[in-house]
Amino acid sequence: MISQRKDDHVRLAVEHQRQHSGHNQFDEVSFVHHALAGIDRPDVSLATTFAGISWPVPLYINAMTGGSVSTGIINRDLAIAARETGVAVASGSMSAYFKDPSCADTFSVLRKENPDGFVLANVNATASVDKVQRAIDLVQANALQIHINTAQETPMPEGDRSFSSWVPQIEKIAAAVEVPVIVKEVGNGLSRETVLLIESLGVQIADLGGRGGTDFARIENGRRELGEYAFMHGWGQSTAACLLDTQDVGIPVLASGGVRNALDVARALALGASGVGASGGFLRTLKDEGVSALIAQISTWLDQLAALQTMLGARTPADLTRCDLLIRGELRDFCADRGIDTGQFAQRSRSVEAAHQLTGSTR
C-alpha cells in the first residue's frame, strides 16, 4: 500500500505541475532596476553559507519520493543530476523504509550515485530517534529534514489525526542527532510564530515550504473516492509571504514551494533565503524529458542566476538582500495584515549607499 501511495503521489504531482505552473505570489515581487548597478561576471559567486553548511550554489533539489521500484529510479536520476550540477539533494520521506526495509535501495541510491554530494535524509515528526539515525546512516546524510504536513495528513485517507506529539518529538530528535536539523513544511508554509517555535526546539534551519508549487492537500483529496476535501486546495501561505513574515528570525531559512525559474530563485534570495529548493518542476522535467534535460535545466538556472546577480550588482547570493524590491497585490495585503512594512524593501540600497558614504568604501 505504501509503494502504491508513493507512485500515486508522483503521478498526481506531475499532473498538478502540468496543470498549475502559472502565476503565484513570486510574481508580486519585482526588483527595482538600477541601470548602473551591474558588476563583472567573474566577480560573482554563487556560494552560500548558513548554519555551518557551505554549498557551492544556493539551489537544491528538495524532497520528493522513494519507497517503490519506480520512485527508486527517480531518486537515482535526481542523484545523478545533483552530482553533475553540484546542487544538494534531499530524499523523500523515509517512512516507507522504516515499515519495509527491503525498499532501502530506493533511498540509498541517492548516495550511491552521488558519493561526494550533499544529501539530506527526510523523516516525519513522529519518527523515533533510533529510526532517524537509521535514515541518516542509510544515505550517509549531511543534514536531516523533518517534514511537517498537517494539511496533507488531514485529507489523506490513511493520514495521521494526532499531531500533539510533533513538537516534543522534534525537540528530542534535534537534541539527539549530530547533523544539522531542518524542519520543513511540504507546501503550506511556515509562519513567523512557527519558525520561532522551531528555533526554540533546538532546530538549526527552517525550510518554509510555502504554497505555490505542489499542493499535497489537492493530491491527497485526489486519492479520495468523493474528493470531499476540495475546500483545502490552496491552503496556507505562499513562499514569498513566508519569507516576508520571517524577516530577521534567529535561524536561517530556506525557501521552497512554487519556485519556477532562476528569477524566482533570485527573488527568494533577495527576500532573505539562504538557499532555494525546487521539486515539482524538476520532477516534471525528469518524467517528461529525462535526466539529461534535468541536468540542462538546473545548469541553465544557475547560469541565469549568476547573470541576474551580475546585472543587480550582487557579488554573492546574500548580497541580493541589499537590492530594492517592490511588493504588490495580495502579497502586499498579507504584509499589511501581518504588520510588515513593505516600503523598507523598496529603499534598501539607500541605506547601503549611506553606509558606504559614511565609511568611505565603494560598492
Rank of each mutant, 00 (worst) to 15 (best):
A240H: 03
S292I: 15
F26H: 13
G213W: 00
S102F: 01
K287T: 14
H33Q: 13
E171L: 06
S256A: 14
D7R: 12
H9E: 11
L269C: 00
G202C: 01
L226G: 06
H147I: 12
Q19H: 13
E158I: 12
S93P: 12
T300K: 12
G277T: 04
N62A: 14
F231N: 07
S91T: 15
L326M: 13
D130L: 11
M232Y: 03
V132K: 07
G275C: 14
Y229H: 12
V179G: 05
I205L: 01
A336R: 15
G202P: 02
S21Y: 07
L120D: 08
D7F: 06
R315W: 05
G52V: 09
V14E: 07
S95I: 15
R76G: 01
A293M: 08
G92M: 06
I173N: 04
Y229E: 07
N188S: 15
A174P: 02
M156S: 04
S93W: 01
D324E: 13
V265I: 15
D100S: 11
R134L: 14
L308D: 00
H20P: 04
Q19F: 10
H147G: 09
G277P: 00
G339I: 09
S238H: 01
W235D: 01
P155W: 03
R5F: 12
H16G: 01
A127Q: 04
Q247W: 04
L120Q: 10
R192A: 12
V203I: 11
V119D: 03
L59S: 07
A306D: 09
D100H: 09
V203F: 01
D337W: 08
L326D: 02
R5I: 14
D40N: 12
Q204R: 06
N149L: 03
A79L: 01
P157T: 00
L331F: 10
A293R: 13
A255N: 07
L12H: 08
T194A: 15
A141V: 11
A174S: 10
A355Q: 14
A151H: 02
G313F: 05
A141G: 02
V203Y: 01
D130Q: 14
L197V: 10
Y60R: 09
G222Y: 04
A63W: 05
L144N: 06
G275Q: 03
